[in-house]
Structures are given as C-alpha cells and as structure tokens.
Design a binder for these strands. Structure first.
Length: 634
DNA sequence: CCTTATGAGA
C-alpha cells in the first residue's frame, strides 16, 4: 500500500534531511495529487468552529477532513486529534501530508503519534521511516515503535530496537517494559524476559500492570516457578494478577491448583470475576469435574455473567469435555448469539464423544448461519469424518480448507492424514503428509498408523524407519501404532525388535505397549510365550493384559488358558462383564468341543445381571450365545 | 498540554 515514489525515498537513506522532507512531500502529493492540490488552494474558512459546543473538537474523521480541506494550515493540536481519529492507512497518509505541508512534522509529539498510528494500520515501513526522521527521540518515540513491532510479531526487531535505545542513552519506563515483555511471550525468549525482569526496579514493581505483565510473560514461557516467585513478592496484586497466575495453572493443566487458587483468592478478600470463572471452567474441563463445573455455572448465573458470550462458550466447553452433551446443548440453545468459538465448542463436544454424524450436522448448521469455519473448526470436523469414515464428506471439507491455506498447518494436516487413514484412502493420506511442514512426531505417527490400521504393516514399519532416519525421535504413541501394526500382521520378530528399541530412546513402555506385546505373541499363536512374557513384566497385575491374552486364546481356541486368563482378568479388575463377553466368544467358537461350558458362562452372566446392570453387553452376549448354539447344529 | 499501556474462549 506504499506508493512507488514514497518507497524509493525510503530506500534512499543517504538523503539530507531537507531534501528528504521535500521527497516525502513529493511522494505524498504524488499519492493523490489532485486531491492535495485542491486542499492547498482552497481558501481558508472557519469550518472548525461549526462543531460541538466546546468549539475545537471534532466528532468524526470526516469532520476533520472537511476541516483540513477548508484550512490550508491546520494547527498542531488539530493535527494530533486528526491523527488520533484516523481509522485507515489512507487517513493517516492524509494527515501526514498535512503535517508536511504545514512543516511541523518535526514536532516530536506529532511524529510520535504518526509512528504509532502508521504501525496501528500495519504500515510498519512508513512507521519506521517517520521514526528515523525524528531528531529528538523521547522514551515515548522508542516505546511507540517497540510496541508497534511487538504488535506485528516482529519480536526480534523490537528487542534489537530496545538495545539501540539503551545504547543511545534513553531510559525505558514502565510502558516500554510492558511492550518489551510482550516480545518475550514464548519459551525461546525466556532468557530475554528474565533479563528484562532484572532491569525492573522494586519501585517500578509497585505498578500492578507491570508486575502482571511479567507474570504473564513467565506463564507464556511455561516457567511456573518464576511466575510464582514474583507473585509472592508483588505488594499490590489485584484480581487481574490472580487471574494471570490462574491462567498459568490452567495452561499447564494443573486443574486442582487452579481451583485451589479461587479459594485463596477469596480469603485474600478478592471477588472472582468473569475471567476467574472462565479459568475455573477450563480447570473443571481438565479435571472432568462436572460437579464443580455446575457449581461455577450457578455462580455465573447468579452474578449475571451468563450473558457474556465468552463465559457461555466456556460453559459449553466444560459440559462437552465432561461428556454431558445435553447440558452443553442446553447452554448452546439458550445463547442469543453464537460465534465461531461457540460452534467449535459444541461441535467438538459431539465429535469427542464419538458422535461424528451429529458433529457434521452441526457444522452444516453453522455454515447456514453464515459463520465462517476456522482452523479449530476444521480440525474437529475432519475428526468427525475420521470418526464415521465419511470419505466423501472428508474430501469436501479438505477442499474447503484449501482456500484458507490450512492444509500445511500441522494440526489440520495431521487430522487429514488420520481421516484418510481411517477411510483407507492411503494415497490421499500420503499426499497430505508431504504437504505438512515441518514433519514432527505427530505427523509421522499419523501417516504410520494410517498404514498400520489398514493392515499395511510393512509400509508402516518402513515409515517408522524413515522417521528415525529424518532424526525425528519416536514417542510412546508412535510405538503403539507400530507395535500394533506388527501384531496385526504377525511380524513377531519385527515387533520384538521395535519394542527393544524403545530403551534406546529412553522410553519406558507403559501398559498399552505391554498389551501390544501380548497381542503380538498371542495373535501369532505363541500363547505360552505370551504368558511367559507377561509373568516377566513389572506390572502384570493388570486386567487389560489378561484381556489381550484372552482374546488371543479365543482366536486360537485355547480354552484352558482362556479360562485362566478370564479369572485373572476378573481378579485384576478389568470388568467382570467384559471378561465374560470375551470368554463367551471363546466358548462360542468352540461350542462343539466343550458343549457344557457355554451354559455355565450363561448362568454366571445371569447371576451378575442385577448388580452390573450392563444391559447392552448382556444383550450382545446373549445374541452371540444364541448364534453359537445355532451354529453348532450345522 | 498532546504521544506509548495489563488479564480471557478454541
């Protein structure tokens, strides 16, 4: 949006000040020559006085422009006000032009507001150019540009500018520090943030806003310890400070500590506000504590905060994460307005509970309401397609998100890979995989498990290998997908080899890895090896392992081992009903050989039915038993 | 006198 003459001037750093001045003028006059000419030649009048009662203030930018148009030489305070009222880069240019025409652009205050306002509308280049021309740079000048750079995510530039400011002998004030701390909101800038903290004196820390900014900085750098240390030293922490520290606990997934903070806050004599409740609800979602969530819901209603869309969105989310879809829908329906976040919340609630079709239905409703989906929406609806293996719908959504160039986003891309993997569209999964950058463990695991789940174990193993050759360290999830690929394909040796390689990466196998191993031996018919392996394991007192063994016994018709496994499964608490279902499958498969056992299992099931009340699995079981008996007469 | 400025949903 910068004109060519203007740009060529900017690049001509060697120009003398006087000549640059006229160059700027030329540039801006060239920008809209006719317009400017008209402004300059028009005779002055007293347009400014026609506005409000106090005479010197304007309402809108239009008033000001009319004023400028009428006056060839607006005065300084009029220009300052004009700049402040700008609402587009075009307006700023016009004001700048008037500053030049009236030859008062060297006024530091005026220039400061130009630096800031240019930056506000994204014209960093113009902002820097004005900055360079200012001779008497004050703290405010530096701070204006620093905060502009931070706002435009040019963090390194902002910090470099701070260094230059320091070298030129200007002392930063609280506002400068607040802006600079904004440049350190990422782990990689933690050292820089600590350095800034060290430059801030005790007196300066009595400014709550500054203190809170440092805490937030430590939070974003995920350094809870530094944040807590400072928090205990702050003399006048307010509700915002407490909320800031609470946000850190929530972001570090320490739900209990976050909730505990509400109580401590209360005893410190502070009343929670909307932000406190938002954090509290997020903590409930983390803890999946619906009781606490309901308690906060009551508070929110009592304090009239339910009309706040952010609070309501948090409620939808909390209920959704706790699996209470009816409650989530109740909040959702009661809301007068739904934004993208609301829709994301309700859609993800359904998808995460396994209701992919309903999630997609909601997605269509959302689009009918004219709400544009964004990153998180796409991640959820692609997940919904994976959930119900809706390949056509998935392709259609994939096409939609191409417009926003979201395909290469790692989270969206991984969701797509997973979806195509689930749908068996491995070619498409691979195409997306090569578009995602950079390839991290998650994307490698997504593509590996896509092949693994389709029974293409050799390719899955190859991808696993390739990942390591690309110096990406596998994590425990990657191992689960590759181990299960081996067990499904009967690649016992490869599976063992993979399992052993976990130690090379310093990974300790968890129960799921052990389940994969039992499965690996069991499926291959190596039942005694599976048993042997289990007995050598550190945590064999887990019903899930015996369940894996039992299902292998079912495949290989090993009734003796199967019975034992079922007993162990019950002993180690993997659900009595589940063990009987598996055992019934075993008997059902061998009904000709051992015709009395099914009746025994059935009677055991009946005796359980009152206590467990698990009618669904009971029904499935009975169906299977009946089918087995029918089959035995063939 | 005018310019720079904190916390939050997914």
């Amino acid at each position: 949006m910068i004109s060519a003459p203007c740009r060529s001037f900017m690049q001509n750093k060697g120009s003398l000040y006087s000549s640059t001045l006229s160059a700027i003028s030329t540039a801006y006059i060239a920008l809209d020559a006719a317009e400017s000419f008209r402004e300059i030649v028009r005779p002055s009048s007293s347009v400014f006085t026609h506005t409000e009662s106090n005479g010197t203030h304007f309402c809108t930018f239009k008033d000001i422009q009319e004023g400028f148009d009428a006056l060839a030489q607006p005065d300084r305070s009029q220009l300052v006000e004009g700049i402040r009222k700008c609402n587009s880069i075009y307006h700023v240019r016009r004001c700048h032009h008037h500053c030049l025409v009236t030859q008062i652009e060297q006024d530091t205050y005026l220039a400061n507001s130009l630096v800031f306002t240019y930056a506000k509308y994204g014209a960093l280049y113009d902002s820097k150019a004005v900055f360079k021309l200012i001779i008497d740079r004050s703290v405010v000048t530096w701070t204006a540009l620093i905060s502009a750079l931070v706002r435009h995510e040019a963090y390194l530039d902002a910090l470099l500018l701070y260094r230059q400011m320091h070298q030129e002998g200007t002392t930063p004030n609280n506002v400068t520090f607040i802006a600079l701390l904004g440049a350190c909101m990422n782990r990689e800038f933690l050292t820089e943030g600590k350095r800034l903290h060290a430059c801030i004196s005790k007196e300066q820390l009595s400014d709550v806003i500054l203190g809170t900014s440092i805490i937030t900085m430590y939070g974003r750098c995920r350094s809870l310890e530094d944040a807590r240390a400072l928090f205990s030293q702050l003399p006048n922490a307010n509700i915002v400070t407490w909320n800031a520290i609470m946000t850190i606990y929530v972001e570090l997934e320490q739900g209990k500590e976050a909730i505990f903070l509400i109580q401590r806050m209360h005893s410190a004599g502070l009343e929670p506000n909307d932000c406190t409740y938002i954090n509290g609800l997020k903590a409930c979602a983390l803890l999946e504590d619906i009781t606490l969530g309901r308690a906060i819901h009551v508070c929110v209603v009592a304090e009239g905060l339910i009309s706040d869309i952010v609070v309501s969105n948090s409620l939808v989310n909390m209920y959704g994460k706790c699996g209470a879809l009816d409650d989530a829908l109740y909040i959702f329906s009661g809301m007068p307005k739904h934004d993208v976040i609301t829709w994301n919340g309700i859609i993800s609630s359904y998808v995460q509970q396994g209701y992919g079709a309903e999630g997609l239905e909601l997605f269509r409703n959302m689009q009918q309401q004219g709400i544009k989906p964004e990153r998180v929406t796409f991640i959820n609806v692609v997940g919904a397609c994976a959930n119900i293996t809706a390949l056509d719908e998935g392709k259609w959504i994939h096409a939609c998100l191409l417009n926003d160039a979201l395909e290469s986003d790692s989270q969206v891309g991984n969701a797509l890979i997973h979806m195509y993997g689930q749908c068996g569209a491995l070619k498409l999964a691979r195409i997306v995989f090569y578009k995602v950058r950079p390839h991290n463990v998650v994307s490698w695991t997504a593509i590996t498990s896509a092949f693994a789940q389709q029974g293409r174990a050799k390719e899955a193993l190859h991808l696993f290998q390739e990942m390591q050759e690309n110096h990406v360290k596998p994590d425990d999830v990657a191992y689960i997908s590759v181990l299960s690929a081996c067990s499904h394909a009967g690649l016992v040796e490869e599976g063992i080899w993979c399992f052993l390689s976990m130690w090379e990466y310093g990974l300790n196998p968890n129960i799921e890895h052990y389940v994969c191993m039992i499965d690996l031996f069991g499926r291959a018919g190596l039942l005694s090896e599976a048993e042997e392996f289990m007995c050598k394991m550190p945590r064999w007192h887990d019903g899930r392992l015996w369940a894996a063994l039992l299902s292998s016994c079912t495949i290989h018709s090993d009734i003796y081992r199967g019975k034992n496994a079922a007993e162990q499964m019950i002993t180690f608490g993997a659900g009595e009903t589940a063990s009987y279902v598996l055992l019934a499958n075993l008997y059902a498969a061998n009904v000709k050989r051992d015709s009395e056992s099914p009746a025994l299992v059935l009677s055991k099931m009946m005796s359980l039915s009152d206590e467990e009340g698990d009618s669904e699995s009971m029904r499935i079981l009975l169906d299977r038993m009946v089918a087995a008996y029918m089959g035995s007469y063939d």
